[in-house]
């Protein structure tokens, strides 16, 4: 039981760390604000949630201590991080930050013009 939980916890922590690394590589390499924001808000959120789940399972299964604050933190990050990404993207769009030069479609522009 302890060995299985240790493997699971190790996997979750490692997955979270690797996802965070992938997300930061995405921020460095992607061309414009929207794609970078996509990488930052999605991969980093899952990375942080994985690490927190690993921490929760570590304290629950090995130390025998249920920490509800970590669960609340998971719910909180899961709710708020996408909203933060949405708001940053929206603010960038409304201040006329250009899209990547190879973008083919901008439907929001037409919708804004029609209003």
């Amino acid at each position: 039981m302890i060995v299985i939980s240790k493997i699971l916890i190790g996997y979750l922590i490692l997955q979270g760390a690797i996802l965070s690394l992938i997300s930061s590589i995405g921020i460095l390499r992607l061309p414009d604000v929207y794609t970078r924001n996509h990488a930052a808000s999605k991969a980093a959120t899952l990375g942080v949630i994985s690490i927190m789940l690993g921490v929760f399972l570590y304290f629950w299964l090995i130390e025998g201590h249920v920490n509800t604050q970590v669960l609340l933190g998971i719910v909180f990050v899961f709710l708020t991080a996408p909203v933060a990404g949405h708001l940053i993207s929206r603010a960038a769009y409304h201040t006329n930050t250009p899209l990547w030069k190879n973008s083919v479609q901008d439907e929001l522009k037409q919708a804004k013009k029609g209003k």
Partner: peptide, 20 residues
């Protein structure tokens, strides 16, 4: 609408955590 809807939920979490 997205910010306001999520604020309605998240404010309660923050309030409860601050009381904790």
């Amino acid at each position: 609408i997205i910010l306001q809807t999520i604020t309605k939920i998240v404010v309660f979490i923050i309030m409860i955590f601050s009381l904790y």
